Simulated assay, not measured.
Amino acid sequence: MTAKLARTTLSIAFHLMPAHRAGWAAAMQGEFDAALSDRRPLAFAAGCLLAALRDLPAHIEGRFVLTSHALAYGLLLPSAALLLVSGLSGYPFVGTAGGDLAAVLPGHGGRVLLLNAGNLLSAPAFVLLVLLLSAVHCLLAWWLIERDWARLGAAARLGAAVMTTLLLLGAITALGAVGMIVPLLWMTVELLLLGLLVVRYRQSVEEDRLPPNVVAG
């Protein structure tokens, strides 16, 4: 069990290392075999992981790993969870009495249905769109960490399309766009951050491949 945990820890350390540290990774693998024979694999693997973590801010790929994980776990996944709860709670066709935002949550009093008999059939469409937007945030986080730029771009376009559809549906059902201004701005900020991060990463990788005199010029 200890050996398996040590191998997993070492594998994570290898994953965090940039491509130009492949020689170091190979040397660590050889030393790990020796540590395994000495019955101290976990301590060695933990030391390798700590060294890889300390080295992250020193190279382009490491800085991208730190930034992408912070964006995924600190913004995209919390947004997905919030959208999931909101969709199941009836956002945006359920309002609150007296402006109490907590009243939107299930089991709380003061919930007001904003749809009338003529547009009540649109409620399932609202729920589906909000839940789809939640799923899009999960995909954005996943493909950002995986650096799958094609799928990340497709998910971003899907998110923008879902948000636009929500706005149009709100206008058609006379709910208006006021209740969707915050999620619209939030989604816009998220997509801008993703775009800037990807563009900056690609530029940094290209500059890293060029000779120093070319980069300086």
Rank of each mutant, 00 (worst) to 15 (best):
K4I: 15
T8C: 03
T9H: 05
I12L: 12
P18S: 04
A19C: 00
A19I: 10
H20V: 05
R21F: 12
A25V: 15
A25F: 12
R39G: 00
L42Q: 07
G47I: 11
G47S: 09
L53I: 15
R54S: 06
R54C: 12
P57I: 04
I60L: 10
L66V: 13
S68H: 07
S68N: 06
Y73E: 15
L75G: 00
L77F: 02
L77C: 01
P78N: 10
V85F: 06
V85L: 15
G90I: 06
F93L: 04
G98W: 14
D100M: 12
A103G: 14
V104C: 01
L105E: 02
G107K: 14
H108V: 09
G109F: 11
L113N: 13
A117T: 09
A125K: 07
A125F: 11
V127N: 02
L133N: 13
H137F: 08
L140Q: 14
W142T: 04
W143V: 00
W143K: 04
D148M: 00
D148L: 01
A154K: 14
A154R: 15
A156P: 00
A161H: 07
V162M: 02
L169N: 07
A171D: 02
G179L: 08
I181F: 08
I181Y: 02
W186F: 09
V189E: 03
L191H: 12
L192W: 10
L194K: 03
G195A: 02
V198R: 14
R202Q: 13
R202L: 11
V205L: 13
E206C: 02
D208V: 00
D208I: 02
L210A: 14
